[in-house]
């Protein structure tokens, strides 16, 4: 069976990628809300926020990139839910296909779709004055970290996709994910927050990830934030993957 892992995953990824290319609006829809937030905060609210850095776009963009991924993965949950509803998962499960191939197909498709949405948001950022100072190595680190975040959130999204009973249930999980950056250093420095909120904000993963991305994009040393950022992602990734694969194995019910 294992000799066909790559073939099976490729065939199934081709299928889910077609789902994306045949409704390209999902890429745009994913990017619209983060872009609106970007414009709103930069042009309306940003003037009142003191970040201590020269340009608010530069400060804000990493957080908006995270929000993009958080809303993008809800489509993965949606597509998986549809597969379950239509009975096609059962069809695949009754065939001699490598068990994990279908989930990996959804994951690879999610990574591709999110990469496109991220490029769209980044382009708008550049248009309105985002000026990264990162060198090639720092860019590689940025791409690597965004990839890790996307993989993590995608595996998280697979769980509700498999569990949900309704379409709304399948994508509702992404709302808290989208809100989490608001209680982090993504929009305003945590120093301005009241003590209990600040305590939460400084110890949740978004702050570590955003601080790391911000430092990398600004061409500055990442200090202490990169290890917690990686540890959070890796930890959640492993747990989500184990749960998702388990659910998929007994998804028969």
């Amino acid at each position: 069976m294992s000799s066909h892992v790559v073939q099976d995953t490729a065939a199934l990824t081709g299928r889910t990628l077609r789902h994306v290319t045949r409704s390209p609006d999902t890429i745009v829809t994913t990017a619209v809300m983060p872009i609106a937030l970007l414009l709103l905060f930069v042009f309306v609210l940003g003037g009142a926020i003191d970040t201590g850095s020269a340009s608010y776009v530069d400060y804000l963009l990493p957080g908006v990139l995270l929000i993009t991924v958080a809303s993008g993965v809800s489509y993965t949950a949606f597509r998986l839910f549809q597969d379950k509803q239509s009975g096609i998962i059962d069809r695949f499960r009754s065939m001699p296909i490598t068990r994990s191939a279908l989930l990996w197909a959804h994951v690879l498709t999610s990574v591709t779709a999110n990469a496109l949405s991220l490029l769209l948001v980044l382009a708008v950022g550049l248009l309105i004055g985002f000026r990264p100072a990162a060198g090639p190595a720092a860019w590689c680190a940025v791409v690597g970290l965004l990839l890790l975040v996307t993989l993590t959130l995608t595996w998280v999204a697979i769980v509700p996709g498999l569990l949900a009973r309704t379409v709304d249930g399948a994508s509702a999980f992404s709302y808290p994910l989208i809100l989490l950056p608001f209680v982090s250093s993504a929009f305003v420095p945590t120093g301005s927050m009241p003590a209990p909120v600040r305590l939460f904000a400084e110890h949740q993963p978004v702050t570590a990830i955003v601080d790391t991305l911000r430092a990398l994009l600004a061409g500055q040393p990442v200090e202490g934030s990169i290890w917690p950022a990686i540890a959070w992602c890796a930890g959640v990734l492993v747990i989500a993957q184990v749960v998702a694969v388990r659910l998929f194995r007994r998804a028969a019910a």
């Binding site: 099976d8 077609r18 789902h19 059962d90 069809r91 009754s94 065939m95």
Partner: peptide, 28 residues
């Protein structure tokens, strides 16, 4: 063995040809 379930399990977004080719690839 092969199963045709009580409710048609086809991919609505793909064409009929693509559905069949997909299954053929998956059956190696």
């Amino acid at each position: 063995s092969s199963l045709t379930g009580q409710f048609a399990a086809v991919d609505e977004i793909l064409s009929g040809r693509e559905n069949l080719q997909l299954i053929a690839r998956l059956r190696h």
